[in-house]
Amino acid sequence: MNEPVILKPSRGWVALNLKDLWQYRELVFFLTWRDVLVRYKQTVLGAAWAILQPLINMVVLTVIFGNLAGMSSEGFPRPVFTFSALLPWGLFSKAMSDAGRSMLASRAMITKVYFPRLIVPLSKVLGGLVDFVIAFAVLLAMMAYYGIMPTAAVWTLPLFLLLAIVTALGIGLWLSALNVMYRDIGYILPFLTQLWLLITPVAYSATEVPAKWQLVYALNPMAGVVEGFRWALLGTRQPESLPLAVSSGIAVLLFITGLYYFRRMERVFADMV
């Protein structure tokens, strides 16, 4: 017989209760799987959208920033240069906005059944990984077409991917919990995504940022992620360790505070959502 569960009012900051989350690990899988299965149902192009979305973005950004604004791509073919950044960016931006809206979207479940609520934004973030993998295959094909070999540093790629996921989860946890209380988040999200894109070196090269601003620039963990991706895959300038440490630190901070804030607000979710 298991320990009895005590239901009582919680006050202040509460424990993360990761054990509970572990017991429900299969639910994470099932919700992620549901999102992936459903995502491209009843679309004409189906999973091709996973490729088309970053491709179209790439074309737009290439034309505007490359051909019109004439910004540098550190000597690499601009399509590859942009696409390699759009992959982690797409994963991040989708995860952020999906996770941000996830609690409201899962209202029916949350008000009816108990499960660790953390699972909801978590599965949204993981759901984006499938699209990432599909688009990654396209990137490899593009690199082959342009005759670019991945660098020896390609083993670091999963680490940068992890950094992107941790950042997305951190911000996603904050936004999803806030969204339950303040529906304003739904309106802020599109602007937040746009602004964030501008402060991330997706359409341009991080080398455009003046050296004295590099540390401030690194406060955006996605800057570190994108630079890392380009470096590991294409062999652009190697990210310096101090800005990278700042990026990682911010990501971890976002993640941990997000976890605790989410858990703290969890008690009112079912009543407020």
């Binding site: 017989m1 298991n2 009895p4 569960v5 005590i6 239901l7 009582k8 009012p9 919680s10 949350i110 008000t111 009816k112 059944v113 108990y114 008690r267 079912a270 009543d271």
Partner: peptide
């Protein structure tokens, strides 16, 4: 809803065995 852990009680407590 309280007993099935969907929502938290505001006062008192409940003990669930199982």
């Amino acid at each position: 809803k309280v007993l099935s852990r969907v929502t938290e009680p505001t006062a008192g407590y409940a003990e669930i065995h199982g």
